[in-house]
Design a protein around this nucleic acid. Structure first.
Lengths: 341, 341
DNA sequence: GAATTTTATGCAATCGATTGATAAGTAATT
DNA sequence: AATTACTTATCAATCGATTGCATAAAATTC
């Protein structure tokens, strides 16, 4: 009895002396199956613990109920929230989520996309690797009619479904916040400029300076290819050893902002009095570091859910009239690292 | 041309004027297919961009190459590392990872398990919900010959494949570390005792006290059902408002340890002089909080990889003679929150 | 040259569910 | 009684790949 006891539609058919098509239809309450028969089929199905074989269904229907998720890493606060939201929304609708990590490598991303393609996912959610600038590996999905939704990290000029935030506006608000706190020389840590997101973040910074009549000083614009904590220390040292150092720093992520706080403190620089700092992401560390780090909050779980909703919309599973490009709200969370009261 | 251009084995067969069985065999370098034919098949397959349909393969072979992963949450540092390791090891072998979150709810866990069962996963990796004490929903997999590996959160008395750490030993070392730092009244924050893991962690604490001849005081044993940061404040208040307060705290996770540091600091209690603290997990916050939090490091990514390796071992995909129960090493990471020099 | 072995390939069933076309049985209409 | 209309259920093909068995052709042996 401890054997592969997988009951199929045929087993039910045999035991009831009907055809398997009848069983199939009965289970779906098809109108052309008699009430009696339907009831009998359902009773036996329940009794024997019948479970439809999704593989068979998918093969027949030409698509699975698995959604592919392609992200750079999953063990990062923001991304794991993103994935969490995706999983939640997908599962509520009876779909599953397949994940893969590119580790920011374009080649790995291509390989993972290929694997997803072969396993006939019903849709793809992507947050691109930093390296990625070509999208042939994504194109194959579109060509096969498999919907693709880009999340957070959006391709340069592709016409595609997107769920994102307004990076420019978000950083505009963050920079403006520093200005309102009295900062006059604000530095910005930017990410790799080949990525649209980081260029947008830089633009918001520049726009905010312009709006408030502050000069743009190239020396205050620092970039790193990876915004890791380690890199944060390098950036902090660069910024703070300038002949004319900044009185405020807007970092494109929290990692580097945290490192800057640590570095500044070690140099006896007072935060926020001498140096106000704001980060981006609103990671959990923000409320741990002292002083607590101000940051721009972006709704990770929500973005994940929206991406799935977008996908379902395209698949006509749940028509909710989602616009092709969804932009979710961000807001500045002012904390002790920047609030001078 | 932008249509579903999915090339099948039959398309290749037709174009080459051979049967689809020949194509199938040729693609797998079957010995009984002529060299010429094999080459021709492969060339055309390459040319037309043939991709095997995993759904069809899986249906035929009676199992997919998808591994189901059942965890309480994915947006937690330790678990996301666990999942990251699983994904990595799985993908290297050409397998994919399906994830689902139980949110610590037994009912949701059952539902997710059921979905996995229907989609014919080839194996299951589980880290149980706190609520879970019955394992019928897992049993169905074993009965169907689908291997199950438990990770980190292990069932009480089931005979099963496991990848875990020695919780008792880990907490023994952590407690001993505090004792070596001069602590004589050590409190312990425990998790829900219905979960084996937390009972083991408590036991290690008790054993360490015993070994060093320290009295066990029930008042110093505090438990919470959820070891959240909020709950950490509650525990901290309880511990520190005792008539005879502790001089050391060993918390069963980092969240509550961090809250305790924050709380203690707000009360003017010096860390580690007045109160030494050590947590568990070695989350990223440990090096952010000040003073840096000592903790017990457990290898999340490694555990994830091991779990997959264990699965492959059972599936005879890669025989590595992994023991049924794998116990990975942990070590104490001493930091400023507990080191009195 | 006949018998036997080897090499290379095809046939057809199978995995489990779905679905358009079709048939059998009963009831209603003329 | 014959025709039409329903109701209910079956047949058989299909999705794409795999595989045991059969077979045709070529090569080898006696």
């Amino acid at each position: 009895m401890k054997k592969k006891s997988n009951v199929t539609i045929h087993d039910l058919a045999r035991q009831l002396g009907v055809s398997s098509s009848t069983v199939s239809r009965a289970l779906k309450n098809h109108a052309s199956i008699g009430e009696e028969t339907t009831k009998a089929v359902k009773r036996l199905a329940e009794e024997l613990g019948y479970r439809p074989n999704f593989l068979a269904v998918s093969l027949r229907k030409q698509h699975s109920t698995n959604i592919g998720v392609l992200v750079p890493h999953i063990n990062r606060p923001f991304i794991s929230s993103l994935v969490s939201g995706m999983e939640q929304a997908a599962r509520e609708a009876g779909y599953s989520v397949l994940i893969s990590q590119s580790y920011e490598s374009h080649d790995i991303e291509i390989g993972n996309a290929s694997a997803f393609f072969n396993s006939r996912i019903c849709g793809l959610l992507v947050s691109c690797a930093t390296e990625t600038t070509k999208y042939d590996h994504i194109q194959q999905f579109k060509e096969s009619g498999i919907p693709v939704v880009f999340v957070d990290r959006i391709p340069e000029k592709e016409d595609c479904y997107q769920v994102m935030i307004d990076n420019r506006e978000a950083t505009f608000k963050a920079t403006e916040h520093l200005i309102q706190q009295g900062c006059r020389r604000i530095a910005h840590y930017g990410g790799p400029p080949q990525q649209l997101m980081y260029r947008q973040r830089r633009q918001g910074y520049i726009d905010a300076l312009a709006k408030h009549g502050l000069p743009f000083d190239e020396n205050l614009l620092l970039t790193a290819n990876k915004l890791t904590p380690e890199e944060g220390f390098v950036l902090a040292e660069q910024a703070l050893s300038l002949a004319n150092p900044p009185d405020g720093i807007f970092a494109a992520n929290d990692n580097t902002a945290v490192s800057t706080i640590l570095y500044a403190k070690s140099k006896g620089i007072r935060i926020p009095q001498d140096l106000a700092i704001i980060g981006f992401n609103d990671d959990p560390v923000c409320t741990i570091i002292e002083p607590n780090l101000s940051s721009v909050h972006q709704p990770g779980v929500e973005m994940g859910k929206m991406a799935v909703k977008q996908l379902f919309n395209i698949l006509d599973i749940e028509i909710t009239d989602v616009p092709k490009i969804t932009i979710l709200d961000t807001y500045v969370v002012p904390r002790a690292s920047s609030v001078r009261s």
